[in-house]
Structures are given as structure tokens and as C-alpha cells.
Amino acid sequence: MTITQSPPEPVVRGDRPAPVRRRTRGAGRAGWLTYSALAAVVLFSVFPLYWSIVVSSRDQSAIGRYPPPLVPGGNLWDNLAAAFEQGNFGTALTNSVIVAGTITVSVVFTSTLAGFAFAKLDFRGRNGLFTLVVATMLVPPQLSIIPLYIMVTQWFGWANDLRGVIVPTLVSAFGVFFMRQYLTSAIPGELIEAGRADGASTFRIYRSIVLPIARPGAAVLGLLTFIMYWNDLFWPLILLNAQNPTVQVAIANTASGIEVDYSLVLAGTVIATFPMLIVFLLLGRHIIGGIMQGAVKG
């Protein structure tokens, strides 16, 4: 695969792009046409979320007529409260925090450990095993759903149990790949050798040299993982019932029926979406950096 053959790129950190680098960037300065086109793209990207606010701040009769209201109304809090109650969102939000949080901690830990081994340690079968990791990324987990369901519910007895949602996804091939790429370029080989010369054990090197350097990469991986499992629908939908949902299962449940009350359904999507949007507003820079960093190696 092209991924494994590309040479490790230097890690781009905040202060690195010097003036020289800026001149090497892409095509020249942007004109007004570029700005308008980009503004249109951003408008399209953000509009559905704006629309969810408009709809969820109106009562149903305002949505069920033409022309539709194009600005938010005054019913937002009422609808949020009603949706919260009906959709069991108290439980759902708690469950989603537990599920996404636990998976994130585990993925970051196991990926940093394995990524370190693949990036900086010599061992027989390293390349073969790493190729396996990359191949694993291409295996869609949806296809194993039936055996997974049998295993989790019948062998482990975790039907409608958060453990059943969490345990099968405690490790991530993407995470190992990501940390390996990050650590390959972030840690100078001499640093490891110096540690060895001082008689430090591998674990000691991992703890005192690798972990501090790995932290920015691990944080980005954590963010991406948390968002991914906060947003996951397929597996929790199969395993959890309406009394014990995650947020995505909860909003899917509110939306079923012949007659759909869109102001309540979209109030549910607002509840499910906004925690991640706030995270994104605060840490968007790092999320973007992580995606682009992973991509250059890709």
C-alpha cells in the first residue's frame, strides 16, 4: 500500500513554518472569487445545523406550512426539554460519555504502546505485523456484526449492556498506525540509544522519553477517537434498547414513526450534536492538525 512506503514526514508543529516555508506554500494570494467560493462552501457546511436550530425552536405547526420560517423562533428551550424527557437523553448522554470516554482512554493507551514498538524498536516480524495492522484498517467491522452479537450477548451475557458496546472497540488499527507515524518522526533515534546506554529498561524509556514526546499526538488521537465513538450508531443500535441508549441511538429512536414531529426530532439532534461542536470550537485547530498530519503520511 502506498501508505507504508511514503517516507515519514517531519511533524509540523505550531511554530515551525518559517517565512521561507510560507513562500513555498501553494498558489498565490486569494482573490475575492476564492473568498466567495469558500464562503459558499462554509455556508453549505453549516446550514443544516442552523436549520436544526430553526426547526427545533418552532412548534410543529410553524414547520408544517409554507413558507417555512427561516429564522429561529422562541420555542427552543421548551422543545429541548420535551425532547430530553421523551428521548431519555439524560441516560443517553451519560452512556455516550462513558462509552466514548472509556474507548478513548484504551485506544490511546494501547496505540501509543504498540505505535512505539513499531516506530522505534527492532523485532522479528515487525514489518509483517505492521502490514497486518494496515490491512486491518481496511476490514469493515460492520461485516462481523452477527458473530459479534452472538459472542457479546451469549458468551459474555452483555445484551443491553454498555460493556458490550465498549469492549469490542477497545483497540484501533488506525490508532496504532497514527501513533506509529507520529512517533517515527517525533523521536530521534539517538534519544532511545542514549537511554539504552544509561541502562534504562525498555519500559523506562517508554515512560520517561516516549510518553512526554507522544503527548500531543496522543491528545489528537484521543479527540478523533472520542468524536468517532460519540457519533457511532450501528453497533450501539444493535446492542442497546430504548431504555438504555447512547445519544445516537436515542435520536434515531425519536425519529421513527409515520408522523414525525420534526421540531422534537431536531431538538434531539441539537442535544446530540452540540457537545461535539463545543469541543470542536475549542480544539478545532488540533483536530484539523491531526487529520492533515495523518493524511500526509497517507
Binding site: 510560507r22 506554500r25 501553494g26 498558489a27 498565490g28 494570494r29 486569494a30 476564492t34 473568498y35 469558500l38 462552501v41 462554509v42 457546511s45 453549516v46 443544516p48 445545523l49 436549520w51 436544526s52 468524536i227 460519540w230 457519533n231 450508531l233 445519544v247 445516537q248 435520536i251 434515531a252 425519529a255 426530532v265 431536531l266 434531539g268 439532534t269 446530540a272 450534536t273 461535539m276 461542536l277 470542536f280 470550537l281 478545532g284 485547530r285 483536530i287 484539523i288 487529520i291
Partner: peptide
């Protein structure tokens, strides 16, 4: 890739859909 003012704003803007869950987007 042009030299832009408000680079972060535009990059974040185009990434908003990715942060939105597929379920929420489908319902909207």
C-alpha cells in the same frame, strides 16, 4: 491552498459536517 486571511475559520467551517454525527445529519 491559497494564502488566506482567516485560514482556520475556513478550515473549521468545511470540517463541521465531519464533526456532526451521521445520524443527526440524516435526520436534519
Amino acid at each position: 491552498n491559497y494564502r488566506l486571511r482567516g485560514r482556520l475559520f475556513f478550515r473549521m467551517g468545511v470540517l463541521v459536517p465531519y464533526i456532526t454525527s451521521i445520524a443527526a445529519a440524516a435526520l436534519i
